[in-house]
Design a protein around this nucleic acid. Structure first.
Lengths: 141, 141
DNA sequence: TATTGTTATACTCTATAACTATA
DNA sequence: TATAGTTATAGAGTATAACAATA
């Protein structure tokens, strides 16, 4: 059946796209002295400080794994643990000035690299892509 | 400018899609007793045996990193190092029967999970997606 | 000389289980 | 009791540098 074949092809395309983007993400992070995971963490914090539990949920890692990641970034003065005034158990993980600058730098670098790969894409396809991806990721457009 | 805004939105969509697919890949590998990297390796070998150098290039990792990955998979009898008859330095990394079965299982699991997310996607969007992704990943359609 | 693959080493990522402090 | 975060531990992924064997 034609539809089934197209589905299989699309799934393969998506997996391949994931790997291509992963490689690009890693290659772009490296010269900035960041692992892809560290870059992801910093970029998430661009939207504002978060507690450990929220951050671990967004990054899809255990809180204990996050503890050591934050330790390493804090040692490099890229993030800081700010005590939460309303809950003495909790912290707000915040970007330092250096962390903010590096997060912007990483974000710009990815954007530049990905945009390079979009140059051959017609405007109509871009619109469809945005809508289709929103459907796949399960978010409102 | 409208185009610039759409570009930014598309880049963000692609990065988010990457993370969603990564998480899905990890969650699907786990119950099979595989890390996402191990699953990737096994699935690459579905297309046939490969030497260490080729495999490291396809997986975008150093040969020395691959050595330890193959060690672990070989210990579990999922892959085997077959001596290359024409080059006594080289091996062909091959799926064992168990590895082949597990690679198929992993592949089917991803396909099922991803297809679940494609149900709401109109057929016309699927066709466009396949073409657009091919452009991004830089492959012929 | 160049290439194939490994070893040694160091660091990061990650999970599980048990824990402390606070709510 | 439940939640926020940490510690201890173990295993996996990764890179760099140096190496042995073969081409």
């Amino acid at each position: 059946m034609a539809t089934a074949t197209q589905d299989t092809e699309l799934v393969g395309s998506l997996v391949q796209l994931m790997h291509v983007l992963q490689d690009l993400y890693a290659e772009t992070s490296r010269p900035l002295g960041l692992t892809p995971q560290q870059a992801h963490l910093l970029c998430v914090l661009l939207d504002g400080p978060l507690g450990m539990t929220d951050l671990s949920r967004i990054l899809s890692i255990e809180r204990s794994s996050l503890t050591s990641m934050v330790d390493r970034l804090e040692r490099r003065d890229l993030v800081a643990r700010i005590p939460n005034p309303t809950d003495r158990r909790a912290f707000q993980i915040t970007l330092t000035d250096a962390g903010l600058a590096l997060a912007h730098e990483a974000h710009n670098a990815y954007t530049t690299q990905i945009e390079k790969r979009l140059t051959d894409l017609p405007a109509s396809h871009r619109k469809t892509l945005i809508t289709a991806i929103a459907t796949i990721t399960g978010h409102a457009q």
